[in-house]
């Protein structure tokens, strides 16, 4: 059974059908790409998947469980984590604390224990720190993580921190919204390696939106192309990118 199963997903804003009869099936361990020209509805699909928008029609199933129309918190708990196209970090908090917020629902400690500094508090903090540093080291962010504010990181590293924070929630499916936006070729290459590493060592399933064709063709095994809210074509990366319709959608006639 597929990990993520989307059937006939549609949403309209006023008269605009932003996503129309969208279908997608992602297997456990897939590295899947969602591409398309600007305004095609890619981020809207992400927002539907994470509960920011409620679909007008269609069903989303994660591991066979219906998660359609649930709230973002419930969807995160069900096992979907995401990053944002325009970086949304907790800017005034340290790099370490950003990841620790991601671990919020993994390690628990009641408010009374936090305020009174009971043993449960120290235990939770210790576990959180260990796990957070473990994740941060994967992205090479563990140095001075406690004393650096998230807003003081360079752009490329902010993107990585956002991925680390999403990973902290122990997701089954990771959604990356334009992870390479604003990165130079070196940073993009590094990011590609990191994404590969996450998939291989954590067994993570990844769905990503990207415009950088080098990244898409380099790491995605399968692609779905959206155009004007509808699926243009779906399948293996090589075949999809060779499809004349796709080229037409991107470059025009």
């Amino acid at each position: 059974m597929a990990l993520l199963e989307i059937n006939n997903l549609s949403i309209s804003f006023g008269g605009l059908r932003a996503v129309d009869e969208f279908n997608l099936s992602i297997e456990q361990g897939d590295l899947y790409g969602l591409i398309g020209p600007n305004g095609a509805g890619k981020t809207t699909v992400f927002n539907l998947l994470t509960g920011v928008y409620k679909p007008n029609e269609g069903i989303i199933r994660l591991d066979g469980r219906d998660i359609t129309g649930k709230k973002p918190i419930e969807i995160n708990k069900a096992g979907i984590a995401r990053t944002f196209q325009n970086i949304r970090l907790f800017k005034q908090m340290s790099v370490l604390d950003n990841v620790k917020v991601g671990l919020h629902n993994i390690y628990r400690c009641p408010p009374a224990a936090s305020i009174l500094r009971l043993p449960a508090y120290y235990e939770t903090e210790k576990k959180m720190n260990e796990r957070a540093y473990e994740l941060l080291s994967v992205f090479g962010l563990d140095k001075e993580a406690d004393s650096t504010l998230a807003s003081n990181l360079p752009y490329g590293r902010q993107r990585k921190l956002e991925i680390a924070r999403a990973m902290a929630t122990n997701p089954r499916l990771l959604l990356l919204d334009e992870p390479a936006a604003g990165m130079n070729p070196n940073e993009t290459q590094e990011l590609m390696d990191t994404i590969h590493y996450i998939r291989d060592s954590f067994g993570m399933t990844i769905l990503l939106i990207e415009h950088d064709m080098k990244l898409v063709s380099g790491i995605c095994e399968k692609l779905t192309v959206l155009n004007f809210g509808r699926i243009l074509t779906q399948g293996e990366t090589k075949k999809v990118l060779a499809n004349p319709e796709v080229i037409k959608a991107y470059l025009g006639e």
Partner: peptide, 19 residues
């Protein structure tokens, strides 16, 4: 406290990580 500050800094992101 971290949850409270995460809401201050970015409530959309806070919600997305289950706060």
């Amino acid at each position: 406290g971290r949850a409270i500050m995460s809401v201050r800094d970015n409530h959309i992101a806070a919600e997305s990580v289950g706060i």
